[in-house]
Design a binder for these strands. Sequence first.
DNA 1: TATATTTGCAACCGATTGGTTTCATAATAA
DNA 2: TTATTATGAAACCAATCGGTTGCAAATATA
Lengths: 106, 106
Amino acid sequence: MRRDPFQAIADPTRRAIILLIAVQAMTPNAIAVHFDTTRQAVSKHLRILSECRLVKQERSGREIYYQLNPTKMKEIDKWLEQFRKIWEDRFNQLDNVLATIKNNKK
Amino acid sequence: MRRDPFQAIADPTRRAIILLIAVQAMTPNAIAVHFDTTRQAVSKHLRILSECRLVKQERSGREIYYQLNPTKMKEIDKWLEQFRKIWEDRFNQLDNVLATIKNNKK
DNA sequence: TATATTTGCAACCGATTGGTTTCATAATAA
DNA sequence: TTATTATGAAACCAATCGGTTGCAAATATA
């Protein structure tokens, strides 16, 4: 079973959950009321997010508060980092790569 | 069928393809030799990436060159942007959210 | 104690995914 | 013209996904 942050944020519901608990830690029940789905489905999403270490849990009696793990979110950002140069600095050069290849063949 | 950049980068092979063609535009055959899979499977990935507008195509005779569309990559970055403040500025504050909630209940 | 609440987990289900093989089409080369 | 090459598309398949219902365990409340 593949468990990485990229797969975790692929689902729109999970992205919404991440956004919710980024503001403040919440319990599964509190999260579930924001979605048109069952509490168990939300719990499944939280489990996946936990396995990817994108969220942290903290128990308080029978309630479990889930909150975002910003450090792990940074990993996705790190992957994007390698492209930042392309879309910022070398934007025009990249557009010419194809033309360059075609010219080399002549 | 959901087609968005988040789902597109969820697959590790597609992320590798993106990285490859970010350096220079390539044909499906040229891309496929880098992977332990068939040319057709790579073509399927390229189709998904195309549908998400993450890659651009340019035909040259019977060859089709695929290259990265940096603008669309930026959209993923835009979503991450909202969390950047959290993991940079408010890192310690966020860690205290749970404690705050628990204190409010007293 | 008896009951209600919060939660995770297992079993199941239809849809989607990523892969394969096979085939059709278009462009190049012999 | 006749091969060969490059590519996309279709049909199929096992595995995974996101959802459901039902249940058990632990904590809180009457």
